[in-house]
């Protein structure tokens, strides 16, 4: 927990934040509309006496009172996908439509890819990229289980993805994962400022490439599951400054979810004023993990 002390000044109710980190993360799932619909699925859970509550901010999100959700027939048949609540945010902020050409630059294990697929109603083209062969296995099996037939998988280094033009690009970047501490407290042991700076180089490379791959008027969403401003605002700020006004930020907030505005200053470094449109989600605000989301528009 010592590592998180550096965020005391930016996290509201820091003690409440620390308290919730000691509590287990609720089990949440997304209804997969590629294979079922909301009312059928809820009927099914009712008939099987499965304890659940619906997420207020997202009609397809559920909290499950189930110990081993991976054993549920609904999961095995791909009617639901076990997915952390805040991890449902970036695909919603990306807001893909049927017929769109979408690139998910860091696709595995496919939670967001398949959420994009269901938003496009299996129409349109989704390229899910993942450089690691081992992680492609989980990406593939999730796409197949969930019946996502408009997803094609590539294995490039995202920073050098071949030139194409997409309507929307998601960069759910590799990060230090501080926001996953409720799920796995060991992640904090691997976090350090040096690691954040190392990741920052990769993250800037990925986001820069994503901007180049987006058509004029297209949307780019950048997200991480970490608090470190070095991996969040600093990355977006760097790309904004280098883009010479070809990119601007739009509000990334989601109605019904509590979040904090992105930082415009950190440790004496000033960021562009636009960074306030990004959103930081802290675990004690919505009883979730931690997350960061930015929505960029290419002019």
């Amino acid at each position: 927990m010592d590592h998180l002390e550096r965020y005391r000044s930016i996290i509201p109710d820091y003690d409440g934040f620390l308290d919730i980190l000691a509590m287990p993360l609720p089990t949440t799932a997304r209804i997969n509309t590629l294979k079922t619909d909301r009312s059928c699925l809820l009927d099914r859970l009712d008939r099987a006496y499965v304890a659940y509550t619906c997420l207020e901010w997202y009609p397809l999100g559920l909290r499950l009172g189930v110990e081993r959700p991976g054993k549920m027939i609904e999961h095995v048949l791909g009617h639901i996908h076990i997915q952390e609540e805040v991890s449902m945010i970036p695909s919603i902020v990306l807001d893909p439509r049927p017929g769109d050409r979408v690139l998910d630059l860091c696709g595995a294990p496919g939670s967001k890819t398949t959420q994009i697929s269901q938003a496009t109603e299996n129409r349109g083209l989704i390229i899910a990229n993942e450089p690691s062969l081992a992680r492609i296995t989980s990406l593939r099996s999730n796409c197949e289980r969930l019946g996502a037939v408009n997803v094609a998988i590539t294995r490039y280094d995202g920073r050098r993805f071949p030139q194409q033009q997409f309507d929307r690009v998601l960069v759910d970047a590799p990060c230090s994962s501080e926001g996953m501490a409720r799920k796995d407290p060991k992640v904090l042991g691997r976090c350090s400022l040096k690691r954040s700076f190392d990741l920052q180089v990769l993250q800037i490379g990925l986001l820069k490439r994503a901007v180049q791959l987006t058509r004029s008027g297209g949307i780019i969403v950048y997200s991480t599951c970490t608090y470190a401003p070095e991996e969040n605002e600093a990355v977006v700020d760097d790309v904004l400054r280098q883009s010479q006004d070809t990119v601007c930020l739009e509000k990334a907030s989601v109605q019904g979810l509590k979040g904090c505005s992105g930082l415009t200053e950190w440790n004496g470094t000033e960021f562009c004023d636009e960074l306030k449109h990004c959103v930081r989600y802290y675990p004690h605000q919505n009883d979730t993990g931690g997350f960061f989301v930015a929505r960029l528009v290419k002019r």
Partner: peptide, 29 residues
């Protein structure tokens, strides 16, 4: 849908033109 074959496997994909990229998987087996 359209179908692609690689070695012994056939894959089903929504009927969309695919850009020229090197693919690991296309739709579902």
């Amino acid at each position: 849908f359209c179908f692609y074959r690689r070695a012994q496997n056939v894959w089903a994909f929504s009927d969309m033109a695919l850009p020229k990229l090197r693919y690991e998987a296309i739709g579902l087996r």
